[in-house]
Design a protein around this nucleic acid. Structure first.
Lengths: 222, 222
DNA sequence: TGACTGAATTATGAATTCATAATTACGCTT
DNA sequence: AAGCGTAATTATGAATTCATAATTCAGTCA
């Protein structure tokens, strides 16, 4: 147990960054919507100063857009931005795969295998929710296994940015089966501890995922 | 000429973020030093509010550390952080190389070749300053040529974080000659438009650069 | 002399206030 | 009634104020 976890939160703006980020990611605050400064101040019971500080941070993360003298709006993720973000996530996951391959303990690999099996079972039961959860667990475990905080932080930021669109698309049966196949190959290479091959597999897996994702979105995201 | 370039700056905090970032990168504000809030307010002629907003943003970028009720300090870059950052920069440059290879116009390649030749001349004249400048120009041109703002933004952020240490190390003659060799190979593959090979070259070039960098730093960075 | 205590000072985080830009509402003209 | 212009209202950015936490410094006692 982490010692700092019991400490509530040192500063209001940090807490607010966290909360506002979740509101954006969970799509409570919708794209292009104006951020209701006054209202949020009331609901959180804080003054405008810390809230505005938090908005500045979120703006630097790209989650909100600040228009001078016209307040903050929730950033809209354009298709172009998705197309730019995905390859970056892919190479970060490639690196994560390579590093995790070298650094994970046998127990760590076993733990990922457990999640992998859970994911396969979810697929066989066609349980999308369980599948998405297990899938995300695996990717997170690999990022964690890379033991590189810089990589983790940048991956996290990028993932947050596009996570909203994940809920907007449906996984086709064809792509789903492909994805499972790719994950099986990844699991094989992880067990082999073949870092370059796992990295390559993860990169192409992510790119395939994104291609399917974009295709499912169609062109109406702009 | 960019139309927005004539507009001074919309908000104080944006301008302050920019200025403070430069003060950190240019090592005017030194690692572990306390950020002199009051003093900076006077020199910039602003109140504490926008300055503190800027500090929050810089903290989210990792350039400063905020200690609750104890103000802000300039972040110290540890050896561990360097070791984590370098591979991430390397894979981003790999991706940049791949994309630039596909997207650069012939003129764009010619322009890089000009900078490349300038770099080689600087090497032959053993002009370190000119070399570093030309070298950075080439890398920036490749990032730019990738035409991916997300990649560019994350690369920029990471580069800013480690740029300070660049001034701390001396390039050995041996490494310098190796670097020129690597750049020649990169230039060849760029002309060939062999994206995977250029990407691979850039990744290993960066990793070699970093290895030399770390070796030159020794273990006294912690 | 040197470490400890506690008051004075200073710095920090957050609320409030203030000036100004943007938006809305209203009346006026055609 | 539609469009324009101006006044009222509101929202925004930034300065100021205020409460509190941290630091400094003087005085005390071992």
């Amino acid at each position: 147990m982490n010692l700092t976890s019991s400490i509530k939160r040192a500063t209001l703006h940090e807490e607010l960054v966290e909360r506002l980020r979740n509101l954006v990611i969970e799509d409570v605050l919708k794209p292009d919507e104006k951020v209701p400064e006054k209202e949020l101040c009331k609901t959180f019971g804080v003054s405008r100063t810390p809230l505005r500080e938090a908005l500045k941070v979120l703006a630097s993360e790209g989650l909100v857009v600040l228009l001078p003298n016209r307040g903050a709006r929730i950033a809209r993720v354009t298709r172009e931005e998705l197309e730019n973000t995905f390859p970056v996530i892919a190479v970060l996951e490639q690196l994560a795969g390579e590093l995790a391959c070298e650094r994970l303990s046998e127990d760590g690999i076993a733990s990922i295998e457990k999640r992998h099996n859970a994911m396969v079972r979810a697929y066989e039961a066609r349980d999308r929710t369980a599948y998405f959860q297990a899938n995300q667990d695996i990717h997170n475990a690999l990022i964690e296994g890379a033991e590189n905080d810089v990589l983790k932080a940048h991956h996290r930021r990028l993932a947050a940015r596009v996570s909203r669109t994940r809920f907007m698309v449906n996984l086709s049966d064809e792509r789903w089966s492909e994805a499972i196949d790719e994950h099986n190959q990844m699991m094989d290479q992880l067990r082999n501890r073949d870092a370059p091959r796992l990295g390559q597999l993860m990169k192409t897996h992510m790119m395939n995922k994104f291609t399917a994702h974009l295709k499912a979105l169609g062109c109406d995201t702009e």
